[in-house]
Design a protein around this nucleic acid. Structure first.
Lengths: 204, 204
DNA sequence: GTCTATATCGCGATAGAC
DNA sequence: GTCTATCGCGATATAGAC
């Protein structure tokens, strides 16, 4: 039983590395088995097929993301926490970058994955909006003038967060920390009109 | 000769429909040939392989996009043109949605495609920045306070433009015009602090 | 749990007739 | 230019021994 869990983890780790490197389409169950040090047949004892492996990886990924932005320990929103969590989110996205790259295509090919993702996604976006509302309630950002809403800003920040890594993969070095950090700069640029001039830098 | 061009176009149209519907991974050259009304062998007379078909589709897509934002006819930037072009860009992205979904993965699998895309991409993003600079020069938007730049705003708008359709594919109906138009609303939200209160609505 | 062996399938690609 | 026929390959998935 413990052995099973361990072997399953080994399969996931091997698959993650291969998927990130070559993309899910170019990686077969045989490749994963070989990389994990298993026979082709044995892999099927642990996972029914490639899609099930992808679903398991997605589960790990979504859980890690949610832990980051959740209200664990009653932590209050702050600009410092926003900056830090953005950086950690980007790091997570890098670790599971095959998902960031292929997500929409993968969801179309697997209804189970799509359902799981939709649920996680909605929880997570509302975490972002709640975070923004807290910032406004605590006077750390000004509220935008209608018709612009906090939700608009949160959605924009979301699109920056999910789009930045793919953007870098096309234009530059996606794992240069300096480049990755520019996602944070863009979010600041969007929030700048609602911040006191030095608030972003000060509160670090 | 004319016949060849016609057949090639038929192949591309059939491939585009299938790619959009099922994704490139699930579509074989045989499927494309059948959908185009050709024998499997005949397809190879016109295109060497699936990647070459994808490259041809990408070429059509990139050309259409560039025509939209180019300085054709010496048209000057305006908020009205920004709104209109955004809407048309989204429509184009919808027509070639398989590219929006799979682009990063496809580029990693095809060095030729990656090179072509990088070139088109850079031209296009600088078109956006130039567009923003024109708006500022003509007093249609205020310039942001440093360190925020026009390029930051253009990049953010870019991320909204490329990220919105995938976002909708996960959360809602990606071809409901009302939904698609919300990409424009988000761009307006980002620009709002730099616009006079009614400028966006007025100039339509 | 893990292995080896194997069955089935469909894709990519080419040859050669018309 | 278009077809039919076909080969080789590798992927998925299962069976059965250990």
């Amino acid at each position: 039983m413990a052995k099973t869990a361990q072997t399953r983890a080994r399969i996931l780790d091997a698959a993650l590395a291969l998927f990130n490197e070559r993309g899910t389409a170019a990686v077969s169950t045989n490749h994963v088995a070989a990389a994990a040090g298993l026979s082709p047949g044995n892999l099927y004892y642990h996972y029914a097929d490639k899609q099930e492996i992808i679903r398991a990886l997605h589960h790990r990924y979504a859980a890690a993301h949610e832990a980051l932005w959740g209200t664990g320990g009653g932590q209050r929103a702050s600009l410092a926490r926003l900056r830090e969590n953005l950086a950690r989110s980007m790091e997570l996205s890098w670790q599971y970058r095959f998902l960031e790259r292929e997500l929409v295509a993968l969801l179309r090919a697997d209804e189970l994955l799509a359902a799981a993702h939709r649920a996680a996604y909605q929880r997570r976006l509302s975490q972002w909006v709640a975070f923004g509302e807290q910032l406004a309630d605590d006077g750390l950002i000004r509220r935008p003038a209608p018709p612009v809403t906090i939700a608009d800003l949160a959605t924009t920040a979301w699109l920056i967060g999910t789009g930045w890594l793919p953007f870098l993969e096309i234009t530059g070095d996606p794992h240069d920390p300096v480049q990755v950090a520019r996602a944070g700069d863009l979010v600041r640029a969007v929030l700048a009109p609602y911040l006191d001039r030095t608030a972003w830098e000060e509160e670090s």
